[in-house]
């Protein structure tokens, strides 16, 4: 019995790490920023943490703090040019950002190990640590979205002119969303570094972008339940049957097309909307 549980532990660890990255993607979309930079920010955090441990021999806590701060710093710097762009242009700029980080990473061989990656990172993070941080991130997102900042994010996402007319500073809130996104990506990138022994530059490229984006699209972009559920579904699904695992990327691809076309709010949010409508229906009194 314990053997069976232990067998699924690596999967659970992956879930916890990717949940943090999914929240990083979620929070910018929630604030109406079409940024896809999470993969690069996670890479920055992971490599910072890794270099702190391997090259500098620092304590993992310092490494995680450094990873979080560099992720956050990079995101805030990125948010300055992105504030001048919208929609498709933001998406392209952040994809370019991922490419810049990736090729700089490969080029700075002496620091990052280049294409060979960063190896021999002491493994200091286990399931319990991951669980604590993932729970913390979930709480942060939950607290955020039920307060004034969450309301401001919603207003900006749905209608910038309305948000501004009510005194909401768009630039300030989107910078805040970026800072949180970068901090989460940097932190969970750092956790990945201390959990995995080794880092590979291509681990933080287009592939991770698609994976993290898929979690949020499938789960939903409007409540904390979205990333929680979306990440779980996409990590568990390939484990259910071998053919699913072998065709993981095809499944992700088909899922993206089907969900965005037929269930654009995602599984969790569609369900929550249905639940609220049902409750209102019971109360009676249609508008």
């Amino acid at each position: 019995m314990t053997g069976a549980i232990a067998g699924y532990l690596p999967l659970f660890d992956l879930y916890l790490i990717h949940l943090g990255l999914a929240f990083s993607q979620y929070i910018v979309l929630r604030a109406g920023v079409f940024s896809l930079a999470t993969a690069a920010l996670a890479g920055i955090g992971a490599y910072t943490a890794g270099i702190f441990a391997v090259n500098l021999g620092m304590h993992p806590i310092l490494g995680l703090v450094a990873g979080t701060l560099t992720g956050m710093g990079a995101a805030v710097v990125l948010s300055i040019p992105l504030a001048r762009l919208r929609g498709v242009y933001q998406a392209i700029a952040t994809v370019a950002f991922i490419q810049i980080v990736l090729s700089l990473n490969i080029y700075s061989e002496s620091l990052t190990g280049g294409a060979m990656g960063l190896n021999n990172i002491p493994k200091t993070v286990g399931t319990v640590t991951l669980l604590v941080f993932a729970a913390g991130a979930t709480y942060l997102i939950w607290a955020l979205e039920r307060g004034r900042i969450g309301r401001a994010f919603d207003a900006i996402r749905q209608d910038e002119a309305v948000a501004a007319s009510l005194g909401i500073s768009i630039t300030r809130h989107q910078t805040l969303a970026f800072a949180l996104s970068g901090a989460l990506a940097g932190l969970f990138g750092g956790l990945e570094a201390y959990h995995a022994y080794a880092l590979d530059p291509n681990q933080f490229g287009f592939h991770l972008l698609i994976t993290v984006l898929s979690y949020v699209i499938l789960g939903g972009r409007n409540s904390v339940a979205g990333p929680l559920l979306g990440t779980a579904l996409l990590i568990i699904l390939p484990e259910l049957a071998r053919p699913l695992a072998e065709n993981r990327m095809i499944i992700y691809g088909i899922m993206l097309i089907v969900v965005i076309n037929y269930l654009p709010k995602g599984v969790a949010d569609t369900f929550l909307d249905w639940w609220r409508a049902r409750r209102l229906g019971r109360q009676g009194g249609a508008p």
Binding site: L140, A143, L144, G147, R148, D154, L166
Partner: peptide, 18 residues
């Protein structure tokens, strides 16, 4: 509720941490 945005009383940190 969004209309009340400009009268803030709680700090950014307390809003962030719930």
């Amino acid at each position: 509720l969004i209309g009340f945005h400009r009268h803030k009383s709680s700090s950014l940190l307390s809003a962030l941490l719930g």
